[in-house]
């Protein structure tokens, strides 16, 4: 059946699917016990992050981009959708649009739910990305939930960060002056055939002009895309190549490795706090706050001991 990616047989695909399901649901302790998942940016394959507000067209654009790039390498794509804070359930719909694309069979597309994560990513995203790399993909694309201000987290997880904007979101650009503008390597104005697209581009240009130059020296690129025009998707793809070539010419691997290590520890700690708190009795919260914190920290440490190396 049509199911192989590159040289990988269908059984490999099945194994990867199950491994990612297990990782996406693994508790902190299960992660600590699992071996061979230490993120190492030095060995990692290029990662491209796609972020931006809901409705910007991230899924369609990401799918088109990944299909195009899959002509010359094995592409894996992780797409994150929000979980319901009430039931914990989710409708993972990013791939509906992607599945309509010609050539989508060449990709490995995997949907993830944001679950308890509050940063536009998903629990265990560090481990999930490493699992994708270990599976042999030559590039991994990561599409975030797209909730706006919280996606600085994705910055630490990817090499090339693409921010997708659409006409009519001028206020959004205003709101982002403080945060996202400094972080995106490439700005995409999607649906560029709609009125207002040139205005957004010039607004971004003027924000970039008044912002002090980035410390790493990269000058953010602006690309106008529209889905009816494949040449615009190709232009975005070439811009990503240009950024990746620029990264390879730099010597900041240790800096990025440190950022990813910090993010990984931080997200495991956050969840360990959540998990430990879910086990305390109700009366616990009647203690003075300092005692609550001290006892919670003791519980957290005691819970870890049997499993630490």
């Amino acid at each position: 059946m049509a199911g192989d990616i590159g040289n990988h047989p269908i059984g490999w695909r099945r194994q990867l699917g199950r491994r990612l399901s297990w990782l996406a649901g693994a508790s902190t302790l299960e992660i600590l016990r699992s071996e061979g998942l230490i993120p190492d940016v030095g060995n990692s394959v290029p990662r491209v992050g796609l972020t931006g507000p809901p409705g910007a067209g991230k899924s369609t654009l990401g799918g088109r981009l990944a299909v195009l790039r899959s002509q010359r390498m094995r592409m894996g794509l992780l797409a994150i959708d929000p979980s319901s804070p009430v039931s914990g359930g989710a409708i993972l719909g990013d791939r509906i649009r992607m599945d309509e694309l010609d050539g989508i069979d060449r990709l490995y597309v995997r949907s993830l739910a944001s679950r308890t994560s509050e940063d536009g990513l998903a629990p265990n995203i560090s481990e999930l990305l490493v699992a994708m790399e270990q599976a042999g993909f030559e590039e991994v694309m990561l599409e975030t939930v797209g909730v706006g201000q919280v996606e600085h987290a994705v910055r630490h997880q990817v090499d090339t960060m693409v921010l997708v904007l659409v006409p009519g979101a001028g206020d959004y650009v205003q709101a982002m002056k403080a945060g996202m503008m400094e972080m995106a390597d490439i700005f995409v104005i999607n649906k560029a055939d709609m009125p207002g697209a040139p205005q957004i581009a010039s607004e971004i240009r003027s924000v970039l002009r008044v912002t002090s130059p980035r410390r790493d020296g990269w000058e953010p690129a602006i690309v106008m895309t529209q889905m009816r025009d494949q040449a615009t998707v190709a232009e975005l793809s070439e811009t990503i190549d240009r950024h990746q070539a620029w990264i390879r010419g730099r010597n900041d691997v240790s800096q990025r490795r440190l950022q990813r290590q910090r993010y990984r520890l931080r997200s495991l700690m956050d969840r360990w706090v959540q998990e430990s708190m879910s086990e305390v009795p109700k009366t616990f919260f009647d203690f003075a706050i300092q005692r609550q914190m001290r006892e919670l920290i003791e519980r957290m440490g005691a819970g870890l001991l049997p499993d630490s190396d």
């Binding site: 059946m1 990612l20 409708i91």
Partner: peptide
Amino acid sequence: EVIYTGLRKSAQHIARVAIDEG
């Protein structure tokens, strides 16, 4: 966590999505 395929999908496609999505 629910993944929806959309309309008019082949059996091969449905099986592929099922295994990719674990």
